[in-house]
Every structure is written in structure tokens, then in C-alpha cells.
Lab assay of single mutants.
Amino acid sequence: AQASVVANQLIPINTRLTLVMMRSEVVTPVGIPAEDIPALVSMQVNRAVPLGTTLMPDMVKGYA
């Protein structure tokens, strides 16, 4: 199954992502693919992302 990017902590709005904030997990619905984690580093989220939330393309500025 495809692993997705999941928030490893609460990520406040406009925060630049770092590796420690993200983990890969097989979840439904599928979000951003886990292999994109390196590309997500330093991108900003456009909303607060609670712990355990799957990151979707529309949550990350410049990803989609």
C-alpha cells in the first residue's frame, strides 16, 4: 500500500516543514506520497495541521 505523509506534531499555520514534523504512514484517504517528504522540507503549510493529520496537496503552499 502507498504510504502518505502524516503530521508528527501540531504544525502551526505558515510553518516551514522540517523532517521531524513528518512521518510516513499507510492511511485512507491517501495524501501526499511519502517519497515526496524530501521535497516538502522548507515548504509552508497554509493551515494548522493537527498531530496525526494526513497532509493533502492543498495544505502545502507551492506543492500542488
Rank of each mutant, 00 (worst) to 15 (best):
Q44Y: 15
V49H: 02
V20I: 09
N14T: 06
T28S: 12
P33H: 09
G62I: 05
A34T: 08
V60A: 01
L19T: 06
S4N: 02
N46Y: 13
T28H: 13
V26T: 09
A7S: 11
V30T: 09
V45Q: 00
L10P: 15
V26D: 10
L40C: 03
V27C: 04
N46T: 15
R47V: 10
V45E: 01
T18D: 05
V6S: 02
D36N: 14
K61D: 09
N46D: 10
L40D: 00
T54L: 04
R23W: 03
T18A: 08
E35S: 13
P50M: 14
L55C: 02
V60M: 05
P12D: 08
M22H: 00
V49N: 01
R16P: 12
M21I: 03
S42L: 11
T54W: 02
R23G: 05
L17H: 00
V27Y: 02
M43A: 12
D58T: 11
P50Y: 12
I32R: 00
P33Y: 11
V6A: 03
V5H: 02
P57M: 06
L10G: 09
A39K: 15
A39P: 04
R23K: 12
N46F: 12
T53Q: 12
I13T: 12
S4T: 04
L51Q: 14
N14E: 10
V49M: 05
L10F: 14
V26M: 08
S24N: 08
M43G: 04
V20A: 14
V49W: 02
M22N: 00
R16K: 07
M21R: 03
P38Y: 15
I37N: 00
E35P: 07
S24Y: 07
M56E: 06
L19Q: 05
M43H: 14
E25N: 13
I13F: 13
L55D: 01
Q44P: 06
E35D: 12
T18Q: 09
V45C: 04
E25H: 13
V6M: 08
V26H: 11
G62Y: 06
T54H: 03
Y63T: 03
V6Y: 02
T18K: 06
T18M: 12
M56G: 04
T53Y: 12
Q44V: 07
R16Y: 14
N8W: 06
A1H: 06
A64I: 12
A3N: 07
D58V: 07
L51Y: 14
A34R: 05
V49I: 11
M43K: 14
N14Q: 12
S24K: 10
I11D: 01
G31Y: 01
V27M: 09
I11H: 01
T15D: 05
K61S: 15
L51C: 06
A7V: 08
V5I: 14
V30G: 08
L17S: 00
Q44T: 14
S24R: 11
V30P: 12
P57T: 06
Q9L: 15
L55A: 00
M59F: 11
M21C: 03
V45N: 03
L10W: 09
T28C: 08
K61Q: 12
N14R: 09
M59G: 03
S24G: 07
K61F: 11
P12Y: 12
V30E: 11
L51N: 14
T15C: 04
P12I: 05
S24F: 11
P33W: 15
P33E: 06
R23I: 06
P12N: 09
L40N: 00
V30A: 12
P57H: 08
R47W: 06
N8G: 13
P29A: 04
T18P: 00
T18R: 10
A34V: 11
P57Q: 09
A1C: 06
G62Q: 11
N14D: 15
A7G: 03
A64N: 12
A7P: 02
V6P: 01
P12S: 11
N46A: 09
M59Y: 09
D36L: 10
G52C: 04
V49D: 01
P12C: 06
I32C: 03
Y63I: 04
L19F: 07
P38G: 13
V6H: 02
E25S: 06
D58S: 13
E35F: 12
T18Y: 04
V30H: 11
N8T: 08
R23S: 05
I32G: 02
A1G: 14
V20Q: 15
T53V: 10
L55S: 00
P29E: 06
P29S: 03
L40R: 00
I11G: 00
R23F: 04
G31W: 02
I37A: 07
V45T: 10
G52I: 03
V20D: 07
V20N: 11
T28P: 01
V6N: 00
T54V: 09
T54R: 04
D36H: 11
T28K: 05
R23V: 04
V27K: 06
S42A: 10
L51T: 11
S42D: 08
T18V: 12
V45S: 05
A34P: 07
Q2V: 12
S42G: 10
S4W: 02
T28V: 07
L55N: 01
K61L: 13
P29Q: 07
E25I: 04
P57C: 05
V45Y: 00
N14L: 11
A7R: 01
V41E: 10
S4G: 04
E25W: 07
V60C: 03
V45L: 08
P50H: 07
Q44A: 15
P38H: 15
M56C: 05
I32A: 01
Q2S: 10
K61E: 14
